Amino acid sequence: MTMSITELEQALRALRLSGMSATMQARALQVAQHQMDFLEAFSWLVQDELDRRRSRLLDRRFTLSGLRERKDLKDFDWTYNARLPKREVLALGTLQFLDAKEDLLMIGPPGTGKSHCAKALALLAVQRGYTVLYREAHQLIEDLAEAR
């Protein structure tokens, strides 16, 4: 039994293989133009599905984390606050403290870059598969008071 492209796309969506469905026509065209053989195209289709699932999982984790923006340590202006220990902050980016099951508390006066660094570390943790819940101090205190 041969299925049309439309029927194949519907079947892939019914099987919840949206990554494959999204790239199937392009992969089929590559096979038709002899740019790759069937097994190579099928391997790419499977990889497309894995990439889509990983991307959606990261998006869900980011949404659930409470982060509102994607901050990165590469974007941090280290010249703004020369007293900020750059080497130590970048070392935190390895997330070894999480692997060691240690906590991290950033304290200091307002406007020193704590929130940017914390958000960047939280984003790194999300990207590495950790479950993250980001809260600023005043939010955390309100959440704890409400839970009590």
Rank of each mutant, 00 (worst) to 15 (best):
A118Y: 05
D75S: 14
L92A: 03
V89T: 02
S55A: 14
L98W: 14
M106I: 08
R56P: 00
Q127C: 02
G129H: 07
A91M: 04
W78F: 04
P85E: 00
A118F: 10
P110D: 01
Y80P: 10
L121Q: 12
Q139T: 06
R54G: 07
T94M: 08
I107D: 01
P110W: 00
D75K: 13
L123P: 06
I107V: 08
Y134M: 08
R135I: 06
L121W: 07
L64Q: 04
R60A: 15
R68I: 05
R56V: 05
K71D: 03
K71P: 00
G113I: 07
G113L: 14
R61H: 14
S55E: 15
P109T: 07
D59K: 14
S115V: 06
N81T: 09
V89I: 13
H116E: 11
A125K: 05
D77Y: 14
R53I: 03
S65L: 01
T94N: 13
S55P: 02
Y80A: 15
E136A: 12
K74V: 13
T94W: 06
L140A: 09
S65T: 00
L84Q: 10
D103K: 13
K86T: 10
V132R: 05
R128M: 01
A82I: 15
Q127W: 00
D103G: 12
E102H: 05
R68W: 08
Q127H: 00
L133R: 09
S65Q: 13
I107K: 04
V132P: 06
F76R: 07
L73S: 02
L124Q: 05
R54L: 12
R56C: 11
R56D: 09
L104C: 03
R52C: 02
H138N: 11
L98I: 10
K119Y: 07
S115E: 00
L73V: 03
H138V: 13
A120E: 10
V126Q: 02
L58Q: 03
Q139H: 11
V89W: 00
L121V: 02
A91W: 07
G108R: 02
E69G: 03
R128H: 07
F76T: 13
L124F: 09
R87M: 07
L123W: 09
R61I: 10
D59F: 09
R53W: 01
F76G: 10
